[in-house]
Design a protein around this nucleic acid. Structure first.
Lengths: 203, 203
DNA sequence: ACTCAAGCGGACCGCCGGTCCGCATCGTAT
DNA sequence: ATACGATGCGGACCGGCGGTCCGCTTGAGT
């Protein structure tokens, strides 16, 4: 099956749509108020073009999210300290969460849209499984941490887009304050189990 | 201002609507597929009655949730160990989370519906603030725990309805397994900071 | 029994995500 | 340059949703 190469106007429109969606999500106060028709109008194309190119609303949001997340993904898969794979786990786990938090702060409405889009939840839409697998692996490399499956879920839940949004909007939390609190929380969790290990070895 | 007492058929209909909604949410696979028209039909009333009695969809779900949650709320506010206020915090915090988890397991679709309903997130709809204040207070009663605000948010995020639903549906996790994992996670967090205190005292 | 306001119900509205198909446009073969 | 088939475009259109409205029914005080 030979790869059909897409037409020039198709790729142009695709870019225009992604750019328009990004603008509208960033501008709007709530992503659910950005309709597909709005995006089409902003991009200067017909609605049919959206659905032809991305399947449905979820597909569009996912595609947009993917392009924005790619740098971070690369940094985690194959990058330098502290995100890359060469980092010791006690340093890498907080770094991963911090990076994710920063991403959600920088792309609040887009992240919000994505987590709403996935048929009602973030699980299954977006790169949740990838994040979870990665974080879980790092946690389980910590000596004595044990099963990291649930802990990874719980830690990822602590940086969910709607929680971040709530803390920023309602509580007026600043970026640095949130990062500090997340770091403190993570440290409390990891430090605790690490101390358990030292205690066990000592006893 | 004299309290107008409602008409008999009004209260009858109100009960019928709540019961119908409960049935439909429990039966359906996804709460977003339960429409207001469905609920009205199941209850044998007109759609107008729903909106007259509950304002909007969110109001109906919130009212239903309130009736189901009331026993637990009572047990927390003014009940015996381990949920009640007389419990030492190191025991009460896990108990609160366990109770909340069990509630979400017992009323999965209702909880899911509630967390979707609150204009896109659980914060602001439902009793989130009450849970947060309560848990935060308990955490901060732990000696040496420090600020419990973010930790309370993070712990509550670990039992969010859609995460629970995801773990049960996709991962096939059993009720007891989830409870155990949540307990282990909570213990890891609390134990850690508790040990910090002992270390500090010892040093 | 009479009254009348409280309450009911379902036709109706605007909006949304998603579909469809006649038509314009692109890339290519000539 | 031209002609032609495939690719993609666009917006009218659809079903279904949450929510409103108003003429009619019915409960409850006298």
């Amino acid at each position: 099956m030979p790869e059909r190469k897409p037409r020039a106007d198709a790729v142009r429109n695709r870019e225009a749509v992604l750019a328009a969606a990004d603008r509208l999500f960033a501008r709007s106060d709530s992503p659910e108020h950005v309709s597909m028709a709005d995006i089409a109008a902003e991009a200067g194309v017909g609605k049919g073009t959206l659905f032809r190119g991305f399947g449905d609303r979820t597909g569009l949001i996912r595609a947009l999210h993917e392009t924005r997340l790619e740098p971070i993904r690369q940094a985690v898969v194959d990058g330098p300290r502290p995100l890359g794979p060469g980092t010791p786990p006690a340093e890498r786990a907080p770094a991963l969460l911090d990076a994710l938090l920063c991403f959600k702060l920088d792309h609040r409405h887009l992240s919000l849209a994505l987590e709403e889009a996935g048929s009602g939840s973030p699980y299954g839409a977006g790169h949740y499984d990838w994040w979870h697998d990665t974080l879980r692996g790092v946690l389980e490399d910590l000596p004595g941490f044990g099963d990291g499956d649930f802990a990874a879920h719980a830690l990822l839940a602590a940086v969910r887009a709607d929680l971040v949004d709530h803390l920023v909007d309602r509580h007026g939390a600043s970026r640095e304050r949130l990062r500090a609190e997340l770091a403190a929380y993570t440290a409390k969790l990891l430090h605790g189990s690490y101390q358990d290990v030292r205690t066990a070895h000592a006893g």
